[in-house]
Nucleic acid binder design. Structure first.
Length: 830
RNA sequence: GCCCAGGUGGCGAAAUUGGCAGACGCACCAGACUUAGGAUCUGGCGCCGUAAGGCUUGGAGGUUCAAGUCCUCUCCUGGGCACCA
C-alpha cells in the first residue's frame, strides 16, 4: 500500500463517523479524564490557533484513553456575540442563520480534517434555547442569592459598538474589539457581585499549582488585593466624614489635603451647601472625560473646595485641619474614592502638591542618620518615622499597625482590605445574546421571570428589523410587551442581553450532562467529572473567562450545586500562532488556512508539525517550510512499514520470547523510547514527544531495512512490536497509525479502543553503559562500564584509559569522584 | 512603576535531583542513484584552529570535585497590569 494522505484520512474519518468511536459514557467516572479546549466562537473561519489548541486537547485525550481512562473530550459553540450581529447588519442575514451556517461549515469542513477525537454527542450551542434557558436560570439564581443587582453607575461605553463594556474589555481606555476610545456614561446596569467572592478568588489562587504561572499572575494582577487602613476625616461643616483608604497609614502625619474623586457622593453635598460654578464645571468636565483622557493628561488637575476636614490626630498633625480637594486622579470606584494627600511619600500626591503649591511634610526617612531636607521627589519606601508625634522613630511596618490600632480605638478608622476587582457588569445593549429574564411592571416593579416560563426566547430578527443599522431588543414590540407574572397587568421585558462571558462561564458543566431538560446539570455526575483535568486555551482568556469560570464555580458550590470550588485542575496556556511576527489576521492578509494545508499535506502532517519544535506554550511564527518534511517522514514511515507488513501477511503477530529475538538492539530502542514517550506525553512535552517518534521510527525502519535470516517467530515478534509502536505513535499520527493497524492487524482494531503497550522492563536499561571521565571538571574520556560497577571497578577502568593516563601522567591525584551511572571526576594538582 | 515569561549553533530547539551541552528536526555541504530532482539513500555539520588543542548556554561575580541548571548583581526581548492610594 502506498501512502496517499487523502485516501487514508478519508477512510479513517468515515470510519470514525460510522462507529461513533469517541463516545464518552459519563456514568463510568471512577477513572475519568476531562480534556477540554476552550470552545470556539463560530466565526466561520478556523485558523491555526484552533488547530493547535484542539490538537493539544486531542493528544491528551487519546493518551489518557490508552492509559485506561474514560475520557470526555467534548466540543461546542460559543455562539452568541457581536460578529453575528454585525454580519447581520452588513449582509442582511439573520444572526441565527448566519451562526447556524458557520457552525455547519466549521464542524463539517474546517474542524473535521484533523480527526480530533471529539464526542459530538455532547455538543452544545450557547445560542440555542435549551442552553440559554439555563443561562437565564443562572441569572435568576444570582438574583435569589442577592448577587445580582441593578444600579445606575458610570459604565464604559463603546461608541462604535453602541454598547457597555466590562472593565475587562477596556484595554488602556480603548475598546478591546475595535479600539474606539471608551466613554463614561451613566446608565442603569445589571451587575453580578463578583467582589463578594474577591477574597476567595484571591486566596484560592494558591490552589492553582497546576496552572500556567502566567495565568495565575494575570488573575493576581486583576484581583489585586491591598491590605490597608480606612481613615476617617470628619467634615464638621457638613456634619459628615470622609473616609480615605491607604496602605501607608504610617504617613498619616504628612497629610496636607484630602482629595476626593469627582464621582464621590460628598461632591453633591459640598455643592449644595456652597454652590460654586467653578467646582461644578470641573466636576462635570472630569466626569465627561473618558478614562484614557483622565489617564493621558500628564498634569494633575483638581480644585480646592471651601470645605475643611479634621485630622484624626490633630494634636500631632502639622495641620489640624486640611482642605478637601476634588481631583480626577482619584478613582471613584477604588478603595473609598478618596485619598489623603501625602506629597512627601507618594509620587502622585507629590505631583498634585507641586501643581497646587501645597506644603510637603517629610515624615519618613530611610534611617535615623538621614539628614532631612527638601524632598526633590516623593520617598515611597518604608523607613523610620519622624515628625509623627508619639509614633516618631518607629519603623513603617510597626507604625502602620500601631496607628491603625489607635485609630480603631478612637473610632476614626479600621483595618481593611480592598480589591481592584470590580463587580461584573453583565448587561449588553445588543440583540444577539441571552435575554435577561426580567420583567418591569409599573405596579410590581422589577419582577424576575418565573422559572417555569424559561426560556425567555430571543425573537427572530427579520430583515426589516435591521434597517437602521442597529439591532436591539427594544425594536421587537411583541417581545417587549408582556404581562406581569404577578399581577398580570401590562409590563415590559428587559431588553438588555447577557454578556457572552456568562454563557461561557458554565459551559464546561453542561457538557457533562448536555441533554438534561430538568436542570442545568446533574450535580452528582458533574461532581464526578470535574474539576477539568486538562484545560487548554490562550492566555488572552486568563483574565476574563477564567475569573468568571472560577467565580461561577464558587457560586455553584455555595448554592450546593457542586462540591468543588475550583473548576480547573490543570490549565495549559497555549502560545499564539503568529505570521511574520504579527498575529494572523484577515486584514493583514497573512492567514494560513488549515483546510488548505490539510488538502496539500494531510491532517497527520499538520498535526505532527504543529506539535513539533516549538513548545506548545510558547508563541510561534508560522512557517510552512517545515511541514513538507513532516509529510515526507510520514510517507516514508508508512510505506516502509506497509512494504514489510505486506511480506508477512500470513504471520500471526506474537510477542513471544523476546530474548530469542534476533534484533535485540531494537528492543532497547523501542521499549526505552516508548517509556520516554509516555513520560513526555504525561508531562505535556509535546515537541519532545514528536522528536521521540522520529527516533522510534528511525530505529524501527533501520531494522526493517536490514533484516536477514529471520525465523517465523522473529517475524511474529516484530509484527507484534510494530502493532505496539503504531498504537503509541497513533497519539501523534492518528490517521497513519489507524490505517496501518486496521489494514494489517484486523479491520476491527481501533486506536481509541487500544491500550498503551506493555513494557518489557528487561529492555529499559542496558548492562553496559558509557560514562564520561572528567579531569579537573573537563571531559577527557568516555569509558564503557558495567551498569552496577562498584567505585573501585569503575575507577580501575578509568585509570586504564589511554586518554586518562595521558592527562594525569606525573601529576598528583587529589580526589576521585564516582557518581554511579553518571560520571567520574578526577581532581589532580596543577 | 509593578507582575509574568523568555535569552543555548545559521534556524526551531533538547538537556530527570547540579553530572558527557546541542537529542530530534529544518537549512546547508559532500557523495551515491538518476535523463532530471523540489524524489530517495549515505556521510558531514556549535565556534576558532591544518592539527594538537582551546573556547562556548545574554553579561559580571559567587558556591561546588562538577553550573545552561543553585545564589547575588546586571543587560536585553516579549507579554500582562497600571494615577488602584
Amino acid at each position: 500500500m502506498n501512502y496517499d494522505h487523502q485516501q487514508v484520512e478519508g477512510k479513517i474519518l468515515s470510519e470514525h463517523k460510522k462507529n461513533n468511536d469517541f463516545f464518552c459514557d459519563v456514568s463510568k467516572s471512577n477513572k475519568k479524564f476531562y480534556s477540554l479546549a476552550m470552545f470556539p466562537y463560530p466565526s466561520g473561519n478556523a485558523h491555526m490557533g484552533h488547530v493547535l489548541v484542539y490538537t493539544l486537547s486531542d493528544v491528551k485525550a487519546r493518551f489518557k484513553k490508552l492509559k485506561g481512562f474514560e475520557v470526555l473530550h467534548p466540543m461546542g459553540w460559543d455562539a452568541f456575540g457581536l460578529p453575528a450581529e454585525n454580519a447581520a447588519i452588513k449582509h442582511k442575514v439573520r444572526p441565527d442563520s448566519w451562526t447556524k451556517s458557520n457552525i455547519h461549515k466549521m464542524k463539517n469542513e474546517q474542524l473535521n480534517g484533523e480527526g480530533w477525537s471529539f464526542d459530538w454527542d455532547k455538543e452544545l450551542n450557547t445560542s440555542s434555547p435549551d442552553y440559554y434557558r439555563w443561562t437565564q436560570w443562572l441569572f435568576l439564581e444570582m438574583l435569589k442569592a442577592n448577587m445580582a443587582y441593578k444600579k445606575a453607575g458610570y459604565v464604559n461605553w463603546c461608541p462604535i459598538d453602541q454598547t457597555v463594556l466590562a472593565n475587562e474589555q477596556v484595554i488602556n481606555g480603548h475598546c478591546y474589539r475595535d479600539g474606539a476610545v471608551v466613554e463614561k456614561r451613566l446608565m442603569d446596569q445589571w451587575f453580578f457581585k463578583i467582589t463578594a467572592y474577591a477574597p476567595k478568588l484571591w486566596d484560592d489562587l494558591e490552589k492553582l499549582i497546576h496552572w500556567a504561572p502566567e495565568a495565575v499572575a494575570v488573575q493576581r494582577n486583576w484581583i489585586n488585593k491591598n491590605i490597608g487602613t480606612n481613615i476617617d476625616f470628619s467634615v464638621n461643616d457638613l456634619n459628615d466624614t470622609i473616609r480615605v483608604f491607604t496602605t501607608r497609614a504610617d504617613t498619616l502625619f504628612g497629610v496636607c489635603a484630602v482629595v476626593i474623586a469627582p464621582e464621590h457622593p460628598l461632591v453633591a453635598k459640598i455643592l449644595s451647601k456652597s454652590p460654586s460654578p467653578e467646582i461644578k464645571s470641573y466636576v462635570e468636565s472630569a466626569l465627561k472625560k473618558s478614562q484614557v483622557e483622565r489617564m493621558q493628561s500628564k498634569e494633575k488637575t483638581g480644585i480646592k473646595t471651601s470645605v475643611k476636614c479634621q485630622h484624626p490626630f490633630p494634636e500631632f498633625a502639622p495641620e489640624k485641619e486640611v482642605s478637601v480637594w476634588i481631583g480626577d486622579y482619584v478613582i471613584g470606584d477604588y478603595g473609598t474614592g478618596a485619598v489623603m494627600c501625602v506629597p512627601g511619600h507618594d509620587t502622585r500626591d507629590f505631583e498634585f502638591a507641586q501643581k497646587f503649591k501645597l506644603p510637603v511634610y517629610e515624615v519618613i526617612v530611610p534611617n535615623k542618620e538621614y539628614a532631612q531636607g527638601n524632598l526633590k521627589e516623593a520617598y515611597t519606601e518604608f523607613g523610620t518615622l519622624i515628625n509623627s508625634g508619639p509614633y516618631s522613630e518607629l519603623r513603617s511596618q510597626t507604625a502602620i499597625e500601631k496607628i491603625t490600632h489607635d485609630l480603631v480605638k478612637k473610632g476614626h478608622g479600621e483595618a481593611t482590605t480592598t480589591f481592584q476587582l470590580r463587580d461584573w457588569s453583565v448587561g449588553r445593549q445588543r440583540f444577539w445574546g441571552c435575554p435577561i429574564p426580567i420583567i418591569y411592571c409599573q405596579k410590581c416593579g422589577t419582577v424576575p421571570v418565573p422559572e417555569k416560563d424559561l426560556p425567555v426566547e430571543l425573537p427572530i430578527a427579520r430583515d426589516s428589523d435591521m434597517e437602521d443599522g442597529v439591532l436591539n431588543l427594544r425594536q421587537f414590540h411583541d417581545f417587549v410587551h408582556t404581562k406581569c407574572p404577578h399581577c398580570h397587568g401590562p409590563a415590559k421585558r428587559e431588553t438588555d442581553t447577557l454578556d457572552t462571558f456568562l454563557c461561557s462561564s458554565w459551559y464546561a458543566f453542561r457538557f457533562i450532562d448536555n441533554k438534561n431538560t430538568k436542570r442545568p446539570f446533574d450535580s452528582n455526575v458533574v461532581n464526578s467529572w470535574m474539576p477539568i483535568d486538562f484545560y487548554v486555551g490562550g492566555l488572552e482568556h486568563a483574565a476574563q473567562h477564567m475569573i468568571y469560570f472560577r467565580f461561577i464555580t464558587k457560586f455553584f458550590k455555595d448554592r450546593g450545586l457542586v462540591n468543588f470550588d475550583e473548576p480547573v485542575e490543570y490549565f495549559f496556556c497555549n502560545g499564539m500562532v503568529r505570521q511574520g511576527g504579527a498575529k494572523m489576521s484577515k486584514s493583514k492578509g497573512n492567514v494560513v488556512v488549515p483546510t488548505e494545508i490539510i488538502n496539500t499535506y494531510g491532517g497527520d502532517a499538520l498535526r505532527f508539525y504543529i506539535l513539533s519544535d516549538t513548545p506548545a506554550e510558547l508563541d510561534r511564527d508560522w512557517d510552512d517550510k517545515g511541514i513538507k518534511s513532516k509529510q515526507e517522514f510520514i510517507k516514508k514511515n508508512f510505506n516502509n512499514l506497509s512494504n514489510y507488513l505486506d511480506t508477512v501477511k500470513h504471520i500471526i503477530p506474537q510477542r513471544g520470547d523476546l530474548l530469542k529475538f534476533k534484533h535485540q538492539e531494537l528492543l532497547f530502542d523501542l521499549f526505552g523510547g516508548l517509556s520516554q514517550l509516555e513520560e513526555q506525553l504525561e508531562k505535556n512535552l509535546f515537541n519532545n514527544a514528536v522528536a521521540k517518534v522520529h527516533e522510534l521510527s528511525n530505529s524501527l525502519l533501520k531494522t526493517i531495512n536490514t533484516l536477514k535470516d529471520l525465523t517465523e517467530s522473529d517475524h511474529g515478534t516484530l509484527k507484534s512490536l510494530i502493532a505496539d509502536y503504531l498504537v503509541a505513535i497513533g497519539i501523534l499520527l492518528p490517521f497513519t497509525a489507524e490505517m496501518l493497524l486496521k489494514e494489517y492487524f484486523g479491520q476491527e482494531r481501533s486506536l481509541y479502543k487500544s491500550t498503551w503497550p506493555m513494557m518489557d522492563n528487561r529492555y529499559l536499561t542496558r548492562d553496559f553503559i558509557s560514562i564520561a571521565v572528567q579531569i579537573n571538571g573537563k571531559k577527557r574520556a568516555l569509558i564503557e562500564i558495567k551498569k552496577n560497577s562498584s567505585e573501585a571497578e569503575a575507577l580501575a577502568v578509568a585509570f586504564n584509559d589511554v586518554d586518562v593516563k595521558k592527562n594525569i601522567e606525573g601529576k598528583e591525584v587529589l580526589k576521585k569522584i564516582y557518581v554511579p551511572g553518571k560520571i567520574i571526576n578526577i581532581v589532580i594538582k596543577g
